[in-house]
Computed example of a mutant assay.
Amino acid sequence: MTSSPFKNICIYGAGALGGAIAAKLASSGDQAKVSVVARGAHLDAIRSGGIHLWEAEASNALVAQVTATDDAGELPPQDLVITGLKGHQLAAAVPGIAKLLHAGTRVVMILNGVPWWYFHRDRQSGHAEHQMEELDVNGGLWRLIGPERVIGCVAYQGAEVANPGEIRLSNKGHFILGEPSGETTSDIEAIAALLQKAGVTVSISARIRDDIWSKLMGNAAFNPISALTRGLMSDIMNDPALSTMVGQVMSEVKAVAEALGSHVPMSVEERLERSRQIGPVRTSMLQDLLAGKALEITPLVGVVVSLGKLTGVATPVSATILALVTQLDRKNLQVAG
């Protein structure tokens, strides 16, 4: 078997998802050097005792030792960078991520919502290389990271930092990787093999944008509505008015996706029925709200509205939710500050 070309791997943003991947990579038996960029009490705990990862229904934690820092400049150039940051956190991380890059570095970005690189090498929408200012203020990501380095990633993995240095997964999970071009390159095959060896379930998609929109149908509805109501997903689906609103948002997201040339195979009715089976889940936006953190609004809701304007698709329900959750975020941060 050919050895992996990725000898130095950094997980930038080793929170729940990033930390879980770091722990699995560091424990896989591969010869790669795994490092993480984290901060605060979580960083201190990782430095002192490693990452403690509890898989779903596991009786014992996996404990992984990794090099941990809050200053990417302390690390050598990396062959592979995996970001575990949310879309609204990326701009501030650009200088740090840029320090880790050499000419051939690939960057896997695990993101919810529409990513900043979305239109790079896009053959579906008619808007190839269009840059979205709201996702990449002043173009820092495009210039200093470069969309040509990026491999997209859609994650279906429930994860939470239970305590500093301790991560718990709620399901087995599944990660979808895709080159913006849709090609199956040697890089993406090597990254998929590396993650699979580490026990991560991975598939490669030739149409990663379709996968992005398929997940966003749920996130664009449940995340902001849960933050506005403090409701769990089961609470929302058990309320007729709220579940109707969820369906309206899903319809708007699907319409925008299709106007951009994407195919979302699941109907709104099918997606609603699946959502009824999920149970009392607290969304990531509700978690952030309760923790006094900034909310991931633009990639999940704001871009649906702006791309609706770009394509001429009406998004009235999403626009209303955007206005409400933006004000909620502003007031919540004032209280937390």
Rank of each mutant, 00 (worst) to 15 (best):
Y12G: 07
D44P: 02
F6D: 04
A206F: 06
A91G: 06
A23C: 06
R143A: 15
G279W: 03
G140T: 12
M266Y: 14
M245F: 14
R230D: 02
A227N: 01
V246I: 11
S306N: 12
D30M: 14
R207F: 08
S226T: 00
V36Q: 06
V313L: 04
G182S: 05
G158W: 02
Q78P: 15
Q31M: 11
S284E: 01
E74Q: 10
I188K: 01
F175C: 00
V114G: 03
M266V: 13
L328R: 01
A92I: 06
E74Y: 01
Q65Y: 15
Q65N: 15
P115N: 10
G308F: 03
G73Y: 03
A23M: 05
R330C: 09
H120E: 13
G50K: 06
L25N: 12
E179P: 01
V81P: 02
L101Y: 06
D239R: 08
R106L: 11
A294R: 13
A56M: 09
V281I: 05
Q78Y: 13
A221V: 13
S234E: 05
W213D: 00
E148G: 13
T311W: 03
L228Q: 01
L310S: 03
P95V: 13
A291R: 12
Q31S: 14
P299D: 09
D136I: 09
P147W: 12
A64I: 04
L85A: 02
T185N: 07
P240Y: 08
A190V: 13
K293Y: 05
N163I: 12
A32K: 10
A259I: 01
I297P: 04
A56V: 11
L75P: 04
A20K: 03
D187V: 02
L75I: 08
I21W: 09
D187P: 06
Q157H: 00
A56Q: 09
A45G: 03
F119I: 11
G146M: 09
A128L: 01
G158P: 02
T105P: 10
M132H: 01
L111N: 04
I236W: 00
G199Q: 10
I167P: 12
L242N: 09
I167Q: 14
E179G: 03
A103T: 13
G247P: 07
A193V: 12
S48K: 14
I9N: 00
M266T: 15
G18Q: 05
S243V: 08
E134A: 15
D136F: 09
H102I: 08
D329A: 14
L195N: 05
T311L: 06
D211K: 05
W54P: 07
Q31L: 13
A241D: 14
P77D: 11
L43A: 02
G84Y: 03
L307V: 13
G104M: 02
I191F: 15
I11P: 04
S262R: 00
G96I: 08
N112L: 03
G140N: 13
L307E: 14
N223G: 10
G146R: 04
I176T: 07
I278D: 00
S186T: 08
V301E: 07
P5C: 04
